[in-house]
Design a protein around this nucleic acid. Structure first.
Length: 218
DNA sequence: CGTTCGATGCACT
DNA sequence: GTGCATCGAACGT
């Protein structure tokens, strides 16, 4: 059984033992508040193969029809319907024909906005993640298992079947497990061609699983 | 460290 | 028909 290097330089510290699923009121707030507070929370996907979970270390905000990079920019369509629905619901879509990307819908119903989960620190189901990430026998270090939005959905087994699942009560949930994010860095969102000037990405400063350019705006 | 490029499916114009 | 909220490999500095 192969083993990667353990995740080092982890800034998040676990301070509380209680586990609770985040309530809908957590998501029913301004998206820039939600995106920062999601750092340190734990995304969990429970499947017949077993649970897999990771602490959120990087995320991005996509806010409203006026945000040209938000999928709601063209107005309501079949694909972006979850963005217009209630907060606390998963929005999953296929990107570049290859990768599934997972968001948490935010803000009051009717206001289309979401947080894209971009990177996790694995905390549960590492062997299962390795199995899902394995292709061609290549080894993946633990800190890289869920580094990047396409990588983390693959490691957790998230596909279109998880689109629109309720993050309060389904096999896909986000939990508070007592981790504290520590210092938070802000910078531009990754991989978009419009709306790139908005510094709406945040991550746990210095965390090895955070992806993308580390240029800090704030 | 950086840039470039192909793979691949589908929503939208 | 066009253009992606990506990834990993290849190659340059």
């Amino acid at each position: 059984m192969p083993h990667g290097k353990p995740v080092r330089n982890v800034r998040a510290v676990r301070t509380v033992r209680a586990v609770r699923v985040l309530p809908r009121s957590f998501y029913d707030r301004p998206t820039l508040t939600v995106v920062e507070e999601l750092l340190g929370k734990v995304l969990v996907h429970r499947t017949p193969a077993g649970p897999a979970a990771g602490m959120i270390v990087e995320a991005e905000a996509y806010i409203g029809e006026d945000d040209p990079a938000c999928h709601a920019a063209p107005g309501p369509t079949a694909r972006n319907a979850p963005l217009y629905g209630p907060p606390g619901v998963a929005y999953v879509y296929l990107n570049y024909g290859i990768h599934y990307l997972v968001n948490a819908v935010t803000e009051t119903e009717g206001r289309p906005a979401a947080v894209l989960i971009r990177a996790l620190q694995p905390v549960e189901g590492v062997a299962l993640m390795r199995k899902r990430r394995a292709s061609g026998g290549g080894h993946v270090d633990e800190a890289d298992l869920c580094r990047g939005p396409g990588n983390l959905t693959r490691a957790l087994g998230i596909t279109l079947a998880e689109n629109q699942l309720d993050l309060m009560a389904s096999r896909l949930v986000i939990e508070e497990r007592g981790y504290t994010a520590g210092r938070v860095a802000w910078g531009p969102r990754v991989g978009i061609r419009v709306g790139a000037e908005k510094p709406w990405r945040c991550w746990i400063a210095g965390h090895p699983a955070a992806s993308g350019p580390r240029r800090v705006v704030r």
